[in-house]
Write a protein that binds this DNA or RNA. Structure first.
Length: 151
DNA sequence: GCCAACGTTGGC
DNA sequence: GCCAACGTTGGC
């Protein structure tokens, strides 16, 4: 099932990297990204998260997670720019990428579901709850997408 | 709303 | 360079 998913993605090759990005829906929601069609993923002020942003390439795939009240993965997005300097930063050395939605997940995958899944016990969502931009292995990415398929 | 986790800052 | 204080994030 996850394989079938990947076949319909616009960019599907082995060099694609996978990440999870978080946002509180009150601050910036998946729905807003769908409406806007594209956004600049700015405001990251954590070095580890920034370094992940800097490693991103065009075509990399992002799971979009709602933190705070929702606590679920709700969408699939992709990186559509190289990393570049965050124009909202008044001091310091921060980076952004531009992001576009690919599609909403059929069923949102809750943090509860993710925590109950043994194969996902090492994900940043479980182990690094405060890290807002984190890499996923292909297996983790595929597993979360598989959990989003209605049975 | 609380608080644990944890990253950052600044005094020494 | 250590570490206490502080601020922020995000789960509960």
């Amino acid at each position: 099932m996850a394989l079938k998913e990947r076949q319909v993605l616009p960019v599907a090759n082995v060099s694609v990297q996978h990440y999870v990005v978080k946002s509180e829906p009150e601050a910036f929601s998946w729905g807003k990204l769908l409406r806007d069609g594209r956004t600049r993923w700015d405001g990251v002020r954590n070095y580890e998260a920034r370094n992940h942003l800097r490693q991103m390439r065009k075509g990399d795939l992002l799971l979009f997670y709602h933190s705070g009240t929702a606590r679920e993965v709700v969408g699939l997005a992709r990186v559509v720019s190289k990393p570049y300097a965050d124009p909202t930063a008044t001091e310091g050395d921060w980076s952004v990428v531009d992001v576009e939605p690919v599609r909403s997940l059929s069923v949102a995958v809750s943090l509860t579901t993710i925590k109950a899944e043994p194969s996902l016990s090492n994900t940043a969502l479980v182990r690094r709850p405060r890290l807002s931009v984190a890499p996923l292995t292909l297996a983790e990415f595929d597993r979360i997408l598989a959990l989003s398929q209605p049975s």
